[in-house]
Design a protein around this nucleic acid. Structure first.
Ligand SMILES: Nc1nc2c(ncn2[C@H]2C[C@H](O)[C@@H](COP(=O)(O)OP(=O)(O)OP(=O)(O)O)O2)c(=O)[nH]1
Ligand SMILES: [Mg+2]
Ligand SMILES: [Mg+2]
Ligand SMILES: [Zn+2]
Length: 569
DNA sequence: GCCGTTTTCGGCCCGACTGTTTTCAGTCG
């Protein structure tokens, strides 16, 4: 079992505790234990099963360790199952109403016997809500109005889609002259794969009510609420939070608004233990406000190495054995694999791809169309593959400073075998093995299926290992830890698919992967020219996972790649 | 629920805003 599964279950329990109005610090204990588990450099289940003693895990004491042992044995723990079956659905629903949290939802349910949103609407209309202690006419009206928001059920947004809204915001700030400095912070700046909103930090020197002025520009679709220092707006259906600061406070404000919440809890705890205090207005030593002119200085003052925004998730950035000085960048990428041509479902011809890659200064590419079982995606019959091989050989004969590696994205068939015979695959430089069908297998079946493909000597790369499509399709059930170990044992590189809907393998597994000695390859999975633009999302994800160029196969030059691929099957 | 260590229970990140309150709790960032 993966640590991530354990973490997920602990987080779920925290959510139920919170909804049931349990002690705040108890809720937080479960949340922070979950983060700790996610950031471990060993596999909990493996250690427990071997009968060894579990090393000390920060934030995991007797109780939570007991739960973890139960989770490893049975996939859940009884307190969780109990609270799940005892929590009325309406509490969960009401918690989604803006302005209604655990306390209010609990009270409404308990004292008014409200069991559905419909009943809540009635209670408001009949003025019963306003009669409750702590409620009044205004909050009643607000709740009535906000019930609609739950029905709309706000979704998170793909980072790549949020970027389009961000572009509009950049143009807007170009067009006005009274904002001196601003930056989009929050999860957007941390390059999280999906974002709930955009969080803007704004500085306007010598302007009294900047936010008011911005609100009145009519640029945003909606201004939901606001005070002097912050307003909540929306654009393209995406919420936007704006906060205004003095120029001198810009860096601590930016740092604050970049988050994450979990990062701040840890960092501020550390600060406090060293007799500092951090908030959005500065870092303080006693009454003295220290001068800060970069985010780096905040970490320096605390005696910590710098933690870039992408890493600030409260998961593993505080581990003492890690530093983030040499994270991979887009410039490190020397060439790209997993390109589809018009032989299968791609839009570009081989020569177009070569020309385009050269114009982008790539030194090589790896062509991999779909295999024959993927008939819906124009998968290649053997003759077509042989034809493509000839064409690629011809291109390579013409070019001295660019190389095309010959490959295929082979379906992993339900029994774990690949889609062509060995003597066909031997004609290729590489095989990406991917799952494109029969997603509904049990976790152990699916894990066995993938592991069998990974053990096939022809397999060089494992493609999009969970098959997830962010915000629309969960990945298939697979034990990623077992898969990672098998990949490392067989020298199979794991793809980090750069398509912003995929970003698969998830960055949260990357520390585990490199601990096991593995590497990733960043693949745009391009079906058209536009697909090449996706590389940056893969780089963001790799950085979030703390990877350096050495952990990314396609930072190597052509000879380096050829060396890795030289053992044919 | 966890932690530290003045080994036993008090503290756990910090602030803006709202609406209710009559001095602050709840929600959200
Ligand atoms: N210190 C502190 N800062 C917080 C807390 N909650 C939010 N923040 C800061 C850090 C967050 O990154 C920032 C923006 O809050 P958001 O709710 O928008 O979360 P974030 O952008 O991190 O993720 P999301 O919007 O959900 O994709 O505000 C908190 O409880 N404590
Ligand atoms: Mg946000
Ligand atoms: Mg926000
Ligand atoms: Zn694929």
């Amino acid at each position: 079992m993966e640590n991530a599964s354990i973490a997920e279950i602990l987080e779920e329990y925290a959510k139920y505790l919170e909804i049931n109005n349990e002690d705040f610090f108890r809720v937080r204990a479960y949340n922070s234990a979950a983060r700790s588990v996610l950031g471990l450099d060993f596999n909990i289940a493996e250690i427990l099963k071997s009968g060894e003693e579990l090393p000390k895990i920060k934030g995991v004491g007797k109780n939570i360790q007991g739960h973890i042992e139960e989770i490893v044995n049975s996939g859940t723990f009884h307190e969780l199952e109990e609270i799940k079956s005892n929590t009325p659905q309406i509490l969960i629903v009401m918690n989604k109403i803006p302005g209604v949290g655990a306390k209010k939802a609990f009270k409404i349910h308990k004292e008014l016997g409200v069991n559905s949103l419909g009943e809540l609407e009635y209670a408001c209309i009949e003025n019963r809500l306003a009669m409750l202690d702590g409620f009044g006419e205004k909050s009643q009206n607000k709740i009535l109005k906000n019930i609609e928001y739950v029905k709309l059920s706000m979704q998170r947004r793909l980072l790549a889609d949020a970027e389009e809204t961000a572009e509009k915001i950049h143009s807007f700030f170009e067009s006005i002259d009274y904002v001196e400095k601003y930056e989009i912070a929050g999860s957007y700046r941390r390059k999280l794969e999906t974002v709930k909103d955009l969080d803007l930090v704004i500085v306007a020197q010598g302007e009294s009510n900047v936010l008011d002025k911005i609100a009145k520009e009519g640029f945003f679709d909606e201004i939901r609420e606001g005070g002097e220092k912050k307003i909540s707006a929306a654009l393209d259906g995406l919420p936007v939070d704006l906060r205004c600061f003095e120029k001198d406070d810009f860096y601590t404000a930016l740092h604050h608004f970049t988050g994450s919440k979990a990062h701040h809890e840890r960092l501020r705890g550390i600060a406090k233990s060293k007799n500092f205090k951090i908030n959005e207005y500065g870092i303080f030593q006693g009454d003295k406000k220290l001068k800060v002119s970069s985010e780096e200085e905040i970490y320096e003052i605390l005696g910590l190495h710098y933690i870039p925004p992408e890493l600030r998730e409260g998961i593993f950035e505080f581990r003492e054995d890690l530093d983030f000085e040499n994270l991979v960048t887009e410039e490190d990428i020397k060439g790209i694999f997993h390109i589809h041509t018009n032989y299968s479902d791609g839009a570009m011809a081989l020569q177009d791809i070569v020309d385009y890659c050269r114009s982008r200064n790539f030194k090589y590419t790896g062509i991999s169309d779909h295999s024959r079982s993927a008939f819906y995606a124009g998968g290649l019959k053997e003759e077509e593959l042989f034809d493509q091989i000839e064409k690629i050989d011809a291109v390579n004969a013409e070019n001295r400073d660019f190389f095309v590696f010959k490959g295929i994205e082979s379906d992993i068939l339900p029994d774990g075998s690949l889609d062509y015979s060995k003597d066909v695959l031997q004609k290729l430089d590489f095989v990406i093995a991917s799952i494109h069908s029969h997603f509904n297998m049990s976790m152990s079946e699916m894990t066995d299926r993938i592991i069998k493909a990974v053990n096939n000597p022809c397999t060089k790369i494992l493609g999009h290992p969970t098959g997830r499509l962010l915000l629309s399709r969960d990945g298939y059930q697979v034990d990623m830890y077992e898969v990672i170990k098998e990949c490392c044992r067989n020298n199979v590189i794991i793809e980090l698919n750069c398509n912003p809907y995929r970003l698969d393998i998830d960055w949260r597994y990357l520390q585990t992967l490199i601990k096991e000695g593995g590497r990733v390859i960043l693949c745009p999975d391009a079906h058209s020219k536009n697909g090449f633009e996706h590389i940056k999302y893969g780089v963001y994800a790799a950085r979030k996972g703390g990877l350096t160029p050495a952990h990314v196969l396609n930072t190597l030059d052509t000879d380096g790649i050829a060396g890795i691929l030289k053992n044919k099957c």
